[in-house]
């Protein structure tokens, strides 16, 4: 399940740093699966229709590592991003895939318990964001990565990562306030 994030200002706990000398064991793998499996699948869904396969291969690649990465969560997101992009390139066209995924894919989230935000509406609004903003928001909100890690992941600066995050949130707010937003609005 997704990692619980406190309301208000997001103070996400630090990255899962591991001892680089120790390889990934079953205990750490189980903890990573429980805490980050769902968010990783959500992150991989930004690029491909088979996000579970991408995340599965990423975890297998992590298991085969002789030494654990310094920041194992950020490492997993990087592997998922690379594999997802590679899989997206292997498909016919990225735009076609994204439109198909947004039209026929399942909602990204489970139904909310407090009815504060409709999960299906949020999924659609998130789908309409540009990929740069979308992956930044997913990595930050549900992945728990810091802006430093997101900048390293997306190969941009920290200020660019934060700018994308803020712009994405603003666009989501507009879409969520307006149930029928225009497609070309950014």
């Amino acid at each position: 399940m997704g990692k619980p994030i406190p309301s208000g200002v997001l103070e996400i706990e630090g990255p899962h740093e591991t001892n680089p000398m120790n390889p990934i064991g079953p205990e750490l793998l189980a903890r990573l699966l429980n805490e980050h499996g769902a968010a990783l699948v959500l992150y991989a869904r930004q690029w491909c229709n088979t996000p579970e396969d991408v995340v599965q291969e990423a975890f297998l690649q992590l298991i085969r590592q002789e030494r654990a990465p310094d920041r194992v969560v950020a490492w997993l997101y990087r592997v998922v991003r690379n594999r997802g992009r590679s899989m997206s390139r292997s498909q016919a066209r990225r735009q076609r895939h994204e439109s198909a995924a947004s039209c026929h894919g399942e909602p990204y989230f489970l139904p909310a318990e407090d009815d504060a935000l409709d999960a299906a509406t949020a999924s659609r609004a998130l789908d309409e964001l540009p990929i740069e903003q979308r992956e930044t928001i997913v990595a930050r909100l549900w992945g728990g990565l810091s802006f430093d890690e997101i900048a390293d992941l997306t190969e941009t600066s920290i200020s660019t990562a934060h700018r994308r995050y803020q712009a994405g949130l603003a666009a989501l707010r507009m879409r969520l306030e307006n149930p029928c937003p225009q497609k070309n609005e950014t």
Partner: peptide, 30 residues
Amino acid sequence: LKSLEAALASLVPRTPSLDRDRLMFEAGRQ
């Protein structure tokens, strides 16, 4: 935006259908 951020963070991603048994088996084997 802060309130929207908190509302979005309260959403829980869908449970993935990962092959957990295979992953644990591979971890133990390695």
